[in-house]
Simulated scan of single mutants.
Amino acid sequence: MTEEKLYQLALQLVPGVGPRMARMLISHLGSASSIFKTPKGKLKKINGIGEKTAEALIQADFLKEAEKVLESCEKQGTEAIFFTDEAYPERLKHIYDAPLIIFKKGAGTLDTTKAVAIVGTRSATDYGREVTREIIQSLIPYNPLIVSGLAYGIDIEAHRAALDNALSTFGVMASGTDVIYPSVHKQTAHKMLEKGGLVTEYAPGTKPEASFFPARNRIIAGLAEAVIVVEAASRGGALITAEIANSYDREVLAIPGNLGNSFSEGCNKLIEQQKAHIYTSAESLASLLNWDLASSTKKKTATKPAALSEMASKIWDSLEKQPNGIHLDTLSWNTQIPIHQLASELLNLEFEGFVKSLPGKQFKLIR
């Protein structure tokens, strides 16, 4: 149990401080612990921080609550991963509404080269279940992570098919990792821990609420390179996930269905509105995601100079993960370097010919 981890958990508990505000505060002040140790008057000078938020941030009660959460995590084998932690999934980190903290349980890793989300109706037909299994089996050569929501229907079929075919699979939950919902999926959830696991933004002990399910869909979309919708009615969680995935510039694919089948309406509509590709085969998916080139084509990277300072080295490592450029605020968040120090260090790296500044406060390595 580290002091900084307690402050990270406490930050999530503060009313009015969501992921975006927390990100902004850390960009200004450097760490979660420094936020709570900053005087109220100084906090109020930060853009967007009002009297109520500043008052809440100087309360010590959140640390006691955070300590209980961390103790629960340790007892249950659940890992609390903060946004700036190395273990935080890279894909998820770069969505605009990424959770401040995720709670992960299981032996698998979320930061895989290939990851596909498979979602659909809870009232899956025999055809939908069969197609789900066929998709999973055809993906075996590519060894992707399979992500879904542990719900009835297509979700649980995807998890079980992944287990049957020795693929890693993660269930994104709308509850704590110790509250399996629906409870009839406990056995499957426990099997998933061996090679994959469970992930949620909710602390241990949290019971599912209706509003949590749409929110967890953004994590399903954020963790994956592509979302495949197998069966969906004209409304439902699968379509919400598809909409979110499109907003994150993820690829969305849908299985077309019979015109008279109500659980094909959503898929057909996505295709009709050009919000999804038609899923035809694992090979076409691999081509769409450039998986067929991943093993044979290696990106050229600039060689990091050995003489860089510790701060410059952190900046370099973060820039290297974003070859097309990264915003100053995001870079500050990822490195936990306050913006005024970061700007100075970036200027030095630019003078030395290692970094290029782009329009809109974006920066990238020169390769």
Rank of each mutant, 00 (worst) to 15 (best):
M1V: 11
Y7V: 05
A10F: 04
V17G: 02
M21R: 05
R23V: 01
R23F: 01
L29G: 06
A32P: 04
K40N: 15
G50C: 08
A54R: 12
E55M: 10
A56K: 09
Q59K: 15
A60S: 15
A60L: 13
A66H: 13
L70G: 00
C73A: 02
E74A: 14
T78M: 06
E79F: 00
I81S: 02
F83P: 00
E86M: 01
E90K: 04
E90L: 04
L92P: 05
I95Q: 10
I95K: 06
D97H: 11
L100T: 06
G108I: 05
G108N: 13
T109P: 00
L110T: 01
A115S: 15
V119G: 09
T121N: 09
D126T: 08
R129G: 14
E130D: 09
I135R: 10
P141N: 02
P141A: 04
N143Q: 11
L145C: 06
V147L: 03
I154R: 00
D155K: 08
D155I: 12
A162Q: 07
L167M: 03
S168Q: 03
V172C: 07
M173W: 04
M173A: 08
A174G: 15
I180Q: 01
Y181H: 01
P182G: 01
S183K: 05
S183R: 09
V184G: 00
H185V: 03
K186M: 04
Q187R: 13
V199I: 07
V199W: 15
G205H: 03
R216W: 09
I219R: 07
L223T: 12
V227H: 11
E231G: 09
A232H: 04
S234Y: 11
L239I: 11
I240P: 01
S247R: 15
D249W: 05
E251V: 12
V252N: 13
L253T: 02
A254M: 12
G257A: 05
G257M: 02
L259S: 09
G260E: 13
Q273S: 09
Q274N: 14
Y279T: 00
S284F: 08
A286V: 13
L289S: 06
W291N: 01
W291Y: 01
D292G: 04
L293F: 06
A294R: 13
S296H: 15
K300P: 00
T303Q: 15
T303P: 04
P305G: 01
L308S: 09
A312G: 14
K314G: 01
D317N: 15
N324W: 14
H327G: 13
T330G: 12
S332H: 10
T335V: 03
I337M: 07
S344E: 13
L349S: 14
G353W: 13
K356S: 08
S357K: 14
K361T: 10
Q362T: 06
Q362K: 03
